[in-house]
Design a protein around this nucleic acid. Structure first.
Length: 954
RNA sequence: GCCGACGUGGCCCAAUUGGCAGAGGCGCCAGGUUUAGGUCCUGGAUGUUGAGGGUUCGAGUCCCUCCGUCGGCACCA
């Protein structure tokens, strides 16, 4: 430890030599950070394995606290970034003082597009770039005093890490989802079922009669990771395809904002849709914010309905509908222009019109197709289909408002009951038949007479209504009044007559998993001469990413939809070809040249924190069960607290849940979910300023006078937004360390509001937290001599009561992540202590020590320093949190407001044990109340002991 | 357009979950300390709780309508 008599502040300034200044804070913070590192203060013991220390685990509850995985940004951190990290650190430190074995670590999501894009703009190889970024980020975060276990910090680009990412890919590739249980099983079990005939092959042929190539193809079609030729999101600006989740509503890339085009490509896809139902239903068992659950439910978009088969001359067409009850009103069919039956159905006379329309639709991007939402366009194919319930022949159209990617790509149009179909029918003069009678209120609302003649209707009618015109020889819905009832009846009829069945459809699509880029995990996949994919044996992992001096993707015109992706790895000729023995002798194979998306590593990274050095498995079973296992019946297991921003609601959080469930099904993990409790931190935003020309000016140089903002004498306009280079409003942690020190910075971030609220940064306000720490420091340390001034005197009872109230309040606030109110209580108590010290020159140890203990999760450096100066020789990290004495929490007397008709007229002092009658008697005897009553007899009195007395008159 | 979250002193935010609108910080005002318009100490002021209606003995809190800000989705059959 340092020599405590050396002055920290220069004698030449007017500041007392031992004042808690930024300079002094910086010195002691560095010293304690070194001490924590040297002593392994935050190393959490595992129950087994290389980091195992069962003796230290025994008798303690575990707690796994997690921050969302950061990618090491080249731009460095601004003050908004550490908000969540500080929050989890405060909570972790609090729980250590409560006796928990806390695991808290931070690693780096260093593969992926953001890192690669940054490398391209700087021209520096991504490995060099990400490594130096990690070094810088580690430095910035270490300076913050985060209590992470440094042994557990991993990066997704570590070979020992991505070896296991590839291994998990092979598990998913080597599995299929059994539809009878909805769970993943090993692909070998599928082969067994085919061999033994338990499961029929898709075309019914005996398994033994199939060629090995045919068998291979059938098996591949069942895998959870499979090759697909479906339409993908091609982004020439990034040189890669993207997942649906990575494309914005405007049809542009989430990263870089480049145009995205639809086109067919053979790509790896993950069968996440097989897990759609579980991903929805298990949300109910998670402790997550409701808005996030809602976003996931909406993204998955489960809708129940029926598939209905219509017969045509060109074969049968299956449509999906959520309203089979309206089938009698289906007066035409509409197919997506991409529907496979379109060409076959189109009659000679309509051929040219259909071809023209198809070409037009293909030329449009998705967002354009959705843009002109008012005008519905379409073309008649010339063909008709038979409505299975009415027997009517109805025309078949194609129209681009029907999407090939949802349902079956074909709909039955019920213009009376669906606004889109209604619009289309009006445009093309198609019949509209009412199948439900709208309510009188509906007609009134539209100011028309009640009529079943739809030609008078301005809109489709959607809702419950009495069914009409819905009858054939063997089925009648007429007279029924509820959708659910009618649906039940017609579903039964459809099933009996073999023309349909209830089914469920999802908005969620399977997850496009290939990227035509360099900076990602190579797939552990090779292709044989027939182009069939084979898994690389796990013994050959990792498949190393080859060093590539020219890592940049071939530059493509961002607007050229017809360009082709050129994966950088395809250029590494000596890497792409490989000789392997996959069971039938040494052969030449061609490697997969795509790489995995950035989400791969973040799908399982949290488990590697738990067992970072394991070379036999991605995680030891016992270690996983200890930190993440279910906590009781029906509990999903998973990290105890996961803190991060809302922006990952449907990307990372959905993908990671999917992988975790597959690993659970295959028996690799005991937990069913990766993150049991999720907490969304808010964002720290900042003001930005623009001059007349709309140029942003440096926010730090803007001066405010009487609500007017100016920069260099010019008036500027204020706006509010994210911190960023373009807004010139970045404030960095380094500036805060320099000006105030890490503890003050931490305290300000936690004090400015609730952790889940977004709020503006104001550097000016930080000084309030520094003043608090200075007052607290001065209560313990003489600013002029550096001596510890604490005394062994007994504290006044009033302050002891205040202390114990503070203990109860701070304990509860920290437990519930209410750091802002915990800090307010600490300041309030310290202000009271300051009053005592200033008037009596006495700082009783029995007040000071608990205050330092309670402060330590928030401001660990100053707390450890004061703890040391108070005569202790260990860090305060594991010193038990103070416990309140119940005797000191009981108040002698409580002030209770007395109201007359809800208005406060007087106050009475009551004992905390006083009865209702005693409250009332005390209230009624007050002059102020007697005069307020003015002789009137109370009609009613409400007494809440210790809270309020209300007397109601007249 | 649909769904969701949030509106409290000049600013950031509290309010025992239906019981006295104000805990804490910034800023502001005044006094003290000081070589000091800085630092530190002490004291003080600041309101139709976004608007309107309802339920209740009692509403910042619960319900309805509207306004504003932010976010998600957007022809999903």
């Amino acid at each position: 430890m340092s020599d405590t008599t050396t002055p920290f502040n220069s004698r030449t300034s007017s500041v007392p030599p031992f004042r808690y200044s930024a300079h002094l804070a910086a010195e002691l913070e560095a010293r304690w950070q070194d001490s924590w590192d040297q002593n392994g203060t935050f190393e959490a013991p595992n129950p087994a394995g290389p980091l195992g220390d069962p003796a230290k685990v025994a008798g303690r509850e575990k707690l796994f606290i997690l921050d969302m995985f950061p990618y090491p940004s080249g731009a460095g951190l601004h003050v908004g970034h550490p908000l969540g990290y500080i929050g989890t650190d405060v909570f972790a430190r609090f729980k250590r003082m409560k006796g928990f074995n806390v695991l808290h670590a931070l690693g780096y999501d260093s593969f992926g597009l953001p890192a690669e894009q940054h490398a391209i703009t700087t021209g520096i190889h991504p490995r060099v770039n990400t490594e130096s970024n990690i070094v810088n980020m580690r430095r910035q975060l270490r300076r913050l005093g985060l209590g992470h276990d440094p042994r557990r910090s991993i990066s997704t680009t570590d070979e020992e890490f991505y070896k296991w990412t590839q291994w998990i890919f092979l598990q998913i590739h080597g599995a299929w989802c059994d539809p009878t249980t909805g769970r993943a099983r090993r692909i070998e079990e599928l082969v067994d079922e085919f061999e033994t005939g338990v499961r029929a092959t898709p075309n019914g042929a005996p398994w033994s009669s199939l060629s090995s190539g045919e068998k291979h193809d059938i098996i591949d079609s069942y895998r959870l990771a499979y090759l697909s030729d479906a339409p993908v999101n091609w982004c020439p600006g990034l040189g890669t395809i993207l997942a649906n989740e990575e494309v914005t509503a405007e049809g542009r890339s989430d990263i870089g904002n480049y145009p995205v085009f639809k086109r067919n490509m053979r790509q790896w896809v993950m069968r996440i849709t097989a897990y759609a139902d579980r991903l929805i239903s298990d949300l109910d068992r998670l402790d997550w914010p409701e808005p996030i659950k809602l976003m996931q439910r909406n993204w998955i978009g489960r809708s129940e309905g029926a598939r209905v088969t219509f017969t045509t001359s060109g074969g049968s067409i299956e449509v999906f509908t959520t309203r089979p009850d309206t089938l009698f009103g289906a007066t035409f069919l509409v197919l997506s222009p991409e529907h496979p039956l379109v060409d076959e159905l189109t009659t000679a006379s309509q051929k040219s019109a259909v071809a023209a329309y198809k070409a037009e639709a293909a030329a449009k991007q998705d967002n354009e197709r959705q843009d002109d939402s008012k005008q519905k366009t379409g073309v008649f194919t010339g063909a008709t289909a038979t409505n299975p319930v009415s027997g009517n022949d109805i025309p078949i159209y194609i129209a681009d408002y029907v999407l090939m990617g949802y349902g079956t790509g074909a709909i039955m149009a019920v213009p009376a009951g669906d606004q889109r179909d209604f619009d289309f029918a009006r445009t093309y003069n198609l019949p509209i038949t009412a199948i439900q009678m709208p309510s009188v209120a509906w007609f009134d609302q539209h100011a028309i007479a009640s009529s079943a003649d739809c030609s008078t209707w301005p809109n489709a009618f959607v809702g419950d209504g009495v069914y009409i015109n819905s009858e054939n020889g063997s089925l009648s819905l007429n007279g029924l009044a509820s959708i659910s009832e009618a649906t039940k009846v017609i579903n039964a009829w459809l099933a009996e007559n073999n023309c349909g069945e209830p089914t469920v459809t999802y908005r969620l699509r399977d997850w496009l998993f290939s990227r035509q880029r360099y900076w990602g995990e190579p797939f552990p996949i090779v292709y044989d001469e027939d182009g069939r994919a084979h898994a690389v044996p796990t013994s050959a992992l990792p498949v190393l990413l080859p060093e590539l001096a020219d890592f940049k993707p071939t530059t493509l015109d961002p607007n050229d939809a017809n360009s082709d992706p050129i994966p950088p790895l395809a250029r590494v000729k000596d890497w792409t070809m490989v000789s392997l023995d996959l069971g039938d002798g040494m052969r030449e194979y061609r490697r997969e040249v795509n790489v995995m998306p950035q989400w791969a590593g973040s799908c399982w990274y949290e488990m590697r924190y738990l067992d970072p050095t394991n070379t036999d498995a991605f995680i030891n079973h016992e270690v996983e069960r200890y930190w993440m296992g279910p906590q009781g019946d029906g509990h999903t297991g998973g990290a105890d607290l996961y803190v991060g921003g809302v922006e990952h609601a449907v990307l990372h959080l959905l993908y990671a849940r999917f992988w975790h469930k597959v690993l659970h099904d295959l028996g690799h993990v005991s937990s069913e979910e990766p993150f049991h409790r999720l907490f969304n931190q808010g964002y720290i935003q900042a003001y930005a300023y623009r001059d007349d020309r709309g140029q942003t000016v440096p926010a730090a140089e803007v001066i405010e006078t009487d609500g007017v903002y100016s920069w260099e004498g010019e008036t500027v306009a204020r706006e509010y937004g994210k911190m960023g280079k373009s807004l010139k409003n970045i404030v960095t942690p380094d500036e805060m360390y320099e000006e105030f020190g890490a503890d003050t910075f931490r305290l300000y971030e936690m004090a400015m509001g609730p952790l889940d609220a977004s709020r503006p940064w104001n550097t000016r306000d930080v000084v309030g937290m520094q003043r608090f720490l200075q007052r607290l420091w001065r209560n313990v340390i003489n600013e002029d001599t550096g001596d510890t001034v604490v005394t062994e005197d007994e504290a006044p009872e009033e302050l002891m009561r205040h202390l114990h109230r503070t203990i109860v309040g701070v304990d509860a606030d920290l437990q519930h992540l209410r750091f802002n109110t915990a800090i307010a209580k600490l300041i309030e108590f310290n202000n009271a202590l300051t009053g005592l010290v200033n008037t009596t020159q006495i700082a009783p140890r029995e007040l000071v020590e608990p205050l330092v203990q309670m402060l330590s999760p928030l401001c660990p450096h100053i707390a450890d320093e004061l703890w040391f100066r108070l005569g202790h020789d260990t860090t305060v990290t594991y010193v038990p949190f103070p416990i309140a004495d119940p005797a000191l929490l009981v108040e002698d007397s409580i002030e209770v407001p007395v109201q007359v008709n809800g208005k406060v007229r007087a106050r009475i002092q009551m004992s905390p044990t006083a009865t209702e009658d005693e409250h009332l008697a005390a209230a009624m005897s007050l002059d102020a109340i007697i005069s307020a009553l003015d002789g009137r007899t109370p009609l009613k009195t409400i007494v809440v002991p210790g809270r309020t007395v209300n007397i109601v008159v007249k």
